[in-house]
Amino acid sequence: MKKSFFRLLSVAALLFLLFRPAIAYEGAKNGLILWGSVVVPTLLPFMICSNVIVTLNAIHILIFPVKKLLHRFFCLSDAGSYALVSGLLCGYPMGARTCSDFMDSGRISNKEGKYLLAICNHPSPMFLLGYAASALPAQVPVSLLLLSIYLPIFPVSLAAKALYQVTEPERSQPVSKKAQRSFDDSLMDSCEVMVKIGGYIMLFSILALYITKFPMDAPKYKAVMLGLVEITTGIKAISEAFPGALCGLWIAAASAFGGFSGIFQTKSVIKNAGLSIRHYVAWKAFHSLLTIILFILLSRVPALVPFP
């Protein structure tokens, strides 16, 4: 059934491309421009530096300021702590990619990898403070957006620890010489991942443009659909379709979920480690629900959220 569905979907997609080639061309161009002008400059340098840090076994230096907090509350090993930090700082899908690499190299166990996947993949502060914040209405503070997206990491962590039975930090595992890579290997690996990400961004940008051009006079529904498909296009559409706090709410929810484009990007970097994309989608849905609830609660108590 699953294969039959994807066969029909691929045939339908090909027919859309053939009958509406102008939209396909424009969507592909928009996706590649987004990838080349935003994603590559912001993500690729971090990805290369991350590989170099791991290769040089310098993880403990980077996580030293937050090591005790991450060990005590999140019950993460040194390698797991680095995966969480890289995911928070670099954005989708860097956290999942680091988690997958560490499982492949034996730095973290299968149990810690499953637990990490629930909490390590998020939009970066640069994306939220730059692109998402610029789309917020004036009455919605950026601090409300940040708190509603990042605070749910704590309750999600508690639920994931209980599900995967994580009770204490694991000891760092010795890394074999086979797992260590040269700088050239790290560079080529990073470029390969970036090409995969670019392909998915291009495909989902085409889908987003088809949704935009669909002859339906319902801008709010379209905006929500675009937020589910691809967050950059979705955030722009949401800012144009919704007023006030409702705009901020949907932007926060879309950013926390990451869109189906982010899900497919994540799937492309975790498949070799044996991690479940279904579990990942369930955790992102749970995180998004908590984001919505927290945004509503915090917006009703302005004293808790300082305006910039």
Results as ranks from 00 to 15, higher is better:
2 K>F: 13
34 L>P: 10
153 I>P: 01
303 A>P: 09
205 S>R: 02
192 E>Y: 14
308 P>M: 06
49 C>S: 13
115 Y>S: 02
144 L>C: 12
31 G>E: 09
288 S>E: 08
64 F>N: 07
63 I>Q: 01
103 M>G: 07
302 P>K: 06
143 S>I: 09
281 V>S: 05
224 V>G: 00
121 N>S: 12
214 F>T: 15
149 I>C: 14
187 L>E: 10
96 A>R: 09
210 Y>A: 09
10 S>H: 00
131 Y>R: 03
133 A>V: 07
234 G>Y: 01
238 I>T: 13
20 R>K: 13
127 F>M: 06
145 L>S: 04
176 S>I: 08
42 T>Q: 11
81 S>H: 01
293 I>N: 04
172 S>M: 11
260 F>V: 08
169 P>E: 09
149 I>Y: 06
203 L>C: 08
151 L>N: 04
152 P>M: 05
17 L>Q: 02
167 T>Q: 05
206 I>P: 03
2 K>E: 13
245 A>Q: 15
97 R>D: 12
159 A>K: 05
268 S>I: 04
266 T>D: 02
32 L>K: 00
90 C>K: 05
90 C>D: 05
304 L>G: 07
216 M>H: 09
187 L>N: 00
202 M>C: 14
266 T>C: 14
229 V>D: 06
117 L>C: 00
57 N>A: 14
2 K>N: 11
269 V>F: 04
26 E>A: 15
55 T>W: 14
69 L>N: 03
10 S>R: 02
260 F>Y: 06
192 E>H: 15
138 A>V: 12
176 S>D: 07
109 S>R: 11
6 F>Q: 03
199 G>A: 09
225 M>K: 09
111 K>F: 00
258 G>D: 06
203 L>I: 12
298 L>P: 08
52 V>W: 00
24 A>Y: 02
114 K>Y: 02
220 K>W: 02
211 I>Q: 02
17 L>S: 13
21 P>T: 10
38 V>C: 10
41 P>Q: 00
137 P>I: 10
69 L>E: 08
142 V>H: 10
42 T>E: 08
75 C>A: 15
218 A>S: 14
233 T>E: 12
295 F>I: 01
84 L>Q: 08
223 A>F: 00
232 T>M: 04
156 V>A: 11
277 I>T: 13
61 I>N: 00
146 L>V: 06
143 S>F: 07
250 W>T: 06
38 V>K: 10
113 G>D: 03
117 L>K: 05
210 Y>I: 09
74 F>M: 03
21 P>D: 10
275 L>S: 03
225 M>G: 08
203 L>R: 04
138 A>F: 03
246 L>T: 15
183 F>T: 11
243 P>F: 09
232 T>D: 01
210 Y>V: 03
186 S>C: 15
176 S>L: 08
179 A>Q: 08
